[in-house]
């Protein structure tokens, strides 16, 4: 079916309108504000690069950027390490479509809970007297409780948990397109399970892994509620800087930090897309 020009624009109009109103316009306002100045609790509408200069000459900015990237890399790696085996098991071990659908629903269920509620749940689980520490001590794995709250580990655990479904499904869908006779051919040529996995399954499902990494990386980079509530002020990332500046009505500083965040995300997307293009098709 071919859709004609006018009809196409008609169909796209509502979405384009919403994008313009709630994305392009605010971004524009943001962009303009980044060229203003904030002095003595007021925004001074002059045109200057001073706010940029302040941001890029302040060592604290680089600590924040570093923290953001570090968090994104750790969370992305962990999420993929946990999600890949889950996707693989779903693909190879679960044959019945009904069971698959039920498991998929279960995997997505964390997303049905509000981020704030879920974060408070983690507060309870990860506290010094929380379930995780109690169990670890009961199992005599540790003697003194681990500090899992208001620091990096807490944020990492919580973000990894919530990003799992976003990582599992792209990988699972690529695995579904994998020609299973390729695995049989590898077995036929003498490969055991491990060789088949490393030479055939993993390389041919890399597009799914990279797609998952792209999603997790950008989501981690822009995560706000979790670092705010579970970071206890110790996990200073870009979205927090944006938020803090904005509540102080320092829009110019918030705008600069926000644009830096945007540029980092775009760079990450472009880098991972370049990787995808080099990968073999399934």
């Amino acid at each position: 079916m071919r859709i004609q020009g006018t009809l196409l624009w008609g169909l796209l109009a509502p979405a384009l309108g919403l994008m313009a109103l709630f994305y392009v316009v605010p971004l524009g306002v943001y962009f303009l504000n980044s060229f203003h100045l904030f002095r003595d609790g007021r925004i001074i509408p002059v045109w200057t690069l001073a706010t940029y200069v302040e941001f890029f000459t302040d060592p604290f900015s680089y600590r924040i950027i570093g923290r953001s990237l570090q968090l994104a890399v750790i969370v992305t790696s962990l999420t993929i390490l946990v999600a890949y085996p889950v996707a693989y098991a779903l693909h190879t071990r679960v044959a019945r479509p009904g069971v698959r659908a039920a498991l998929a629903l279960l995997l997505f269920s964390p997303l049905m809970v509000s981020v704030v509620v879920r974060t408070y749940g983690w507060l309870i689980l990860l506290a010094n007297q929380g379930l995780v520490n109690t169990l670890l001590r009961a199992a005599r794995v540790i003697e003194t409780p681990l500090t899992l709250l208001f620091n990096m580990p807490g944020v990492v655990i919580s973000l990894t948990h919530i990003f799992l479904p976003f990582a599992i499904f792209p990988m699972y869908s690529v695995m579904g397109k994998l020609d299973l006779t390729l695995k049989e051919a590898a077995r036929d040529l003498g490969a055991g399970w491990w060789d088949t996995f490393t030479h055939i399954t993993l390389p041919l499902t890399m597009p799914g892994v990279v797609a998952a990494a792209l999603i997790c990386f950008t989501l981690s980079l822009s995560a706000f509620v979790t670092p705010q509530l579970l970071g206890g002020g110790r996990v200073q990332v870009l979205p927090l800087a944006v938020y803090n500046s904005t509540v102080e009505i320092n829009w110019p500083a918030g705008a600069v930090a926000g644009l830096v965040l945007l540029v980092l995300s775009i760079l990450a997307v472009r880098a991972l897309n370049a990787v995808i293009r080099r990968l073999p098709g399934v």
Binding site: T181, A185, I200, L204, P280
Partner: peptide, 10 residues
């Protein structure tokens, strides 16, 4: 085995 759909590694 030579597979019906060949199953060459792409």
């Amino acid at each position: 085995m030579v597979f019906q759909r060949l199953a060459l590694f792409p």
